[in-house]
């Protein structure tokens, strides 16, 4: 198995200028560490030949990078206009009840983080919920129980 350092070096070779590998490198570091901890940022920086501060500056610009710990699973409910118009808030509240956390929080067992996100680009199939980045379309509050069960069953 190759190390993060080596994988980042490979990514850098894909681009005419190595700095372009910053986003993919941060994604790799996040996958490896679960979130972009200071340690993860240091490792990414080492691979990229950038400073940890640079990596932190870039990472903090993008919503998909987590600079605080998150659960093993991510439930992201789109609450932008199109989804909200057809009841995204009710879907969100169903998740809150089911998981016992509020948006932005992680279940006590560290399994699931619930977030609201901006438009996921599935507006016509609202409400969109991304489960570990896989979209579920047309989600209704009534579907939420089964979704959470499925998620928890998935190791």
């Amino acid at each position: 198995m190759s190390t993060l350092y080596e994988e980042i070096r490979e990514l850098m070779a894909v681009y005419p200028e190595p700095r372009s590998a910053t986003l993919p490198a941060l994604r790799l570091a996040q996958e490896k560490h679960g979130w972009l901890s200071p340690e993860a940022l240091r490792e990414a920086a080492e691979g990229l030949g950038e400073t940890p501060a640079y990596c932190m500056a870039v990472a903090s610009f993008y919503d998909m990078f987590h600079l605080a710990p998150v659960g093993r699973h991510l439930v992201e409910v789109c609450t932008n206009v199109s989804c909200a118009l057809v009841g995204a808030q009710q879907v969100l509240e169903a998740f809150e009840r089911e998981l016992g956390v509020r948006p932005g929080e992680t279940t006590a067992d560290g399994e699931v983080t619930l977030r609201t996100v901006e438009c996921l680009g599935g507006c016509g199939w609202a409400t969109i919920v991304a489960l570990d980045h896989r979209y579920r379309t047309h989600v209704q509050p009534a579907d939420v129980g089964a979704i959470v069960e499925e998620l928890r069953a998935d190791g």
Partner: peptide, 18 residues
């Protein structure tokens, strides 16, 4: 590469690493 901007929009701020 040590003094940077972190976050986005109105939450942007100047910072060093940790």
């Amino acid at each position: 590469g040590q003094l940077v901007a972190r976050n986005r929009g109105s939450m942007s701020m100047i910072a060093t690493f940790e």
